[in-house]
């Protein structure tokens, strides 16, 4: 069976209907007053395109270079980004990568990857509806992470460009360091409200600025 013939479900239907991020309900419930000197700045990068790629690294690398113009991360637990920082590919396991692109690009990306991969034994899954990206910045962002994740977030152990899947307050999260000051958390839709409220609570002592 060829990959090209695989049925694709477009998660962005025509007519531009209203869409809500997984945290829509949480924003309604948790009205927070922004503090003046917030030590933590929490934002959501809502409605991005998330695609999970699985398959052999060599075949996949070739297709991804062709379609996205980026190579797969060569080392475990790393993230590669394009110049604008809008598109990223993260190493999840030896045969699994998470691609995050601006919202609306994911279906086209999936189609082009399937064309480039032809009959190769791979799996491409659009998981855009299943997860969302939170960003954590501010001078106390690391302190909040230190009491939340088991992984060592010291700059020596967690340089910019690293990304790991780890335990986040008993849930799981994909944690990435986007820049010196900013952390990205890829959380599951079903855990989004829990993680959001956890972060609000954990950041209370430093003061938090949400959107």
């Amino acid at each position: 069976m060829s990959n090209v013939s695989a049925k694709q479900f477009n998660t962005v239907p025509a007519g531009n209907p209203a869409v809500e991020s997984p945290l829509h309900w949480s924003y309604q419930q948790q009205k927070s007053t922004p503090s003046a000197n917030a030590g933590v700045v929490l934002r959501e990068k809502a409605l991005l395109g998330h695609v999970v790629l699985r398959g052999g690294a060599i075949v996949m690398d070739e297709a991804v270079r062709q379609v996205l113009g980026m190579s797969l991360p060569a080392k475990p637990n790393t993230v590669t980004r394009d110049e604008a920082g809008e598109r990223s590919i993260q190493w999840i396991s030896p045969d699994e990568w998470l691609v995050i692109v601006p919202g609306g690009e994911e279906c086209d990306l999936e189609r082009r990857l399937r064309e480039a991969l032809g009959d190769a034994h791979v799996s491409i899954v659009n998981v855009s509806g299943g997860q969302t990206v939170l960003t954590l910045a501010g001078e106390n962002a690391r302190e909040v992470l230190m009491k939340t994740v088991a992984f060592d977030v010291h700059p020596q152990a967690f340089p910019v460009g690293k990304g790991v899947t780890t335990v986040f307050a008993k849930a799981t999260v994909v944690l990435r360091r986007a820049s010196e000051t900013e952390w990205e958390l890829v959380v599951r839709r079903s855990f989004a409200d829990y993680c959001y409220r956890w972060l609000l609570d954990a950041s209370k002592e430093y003061g938090i600025d949400t959107q």
Partner: peptide, 12 residues
Amino acid sequence: PYCQEHREEEEF
């Protein structure tokens, strides 16, 4: 051996 680094037992 796949992630090539040490992790907490909680993850396993």
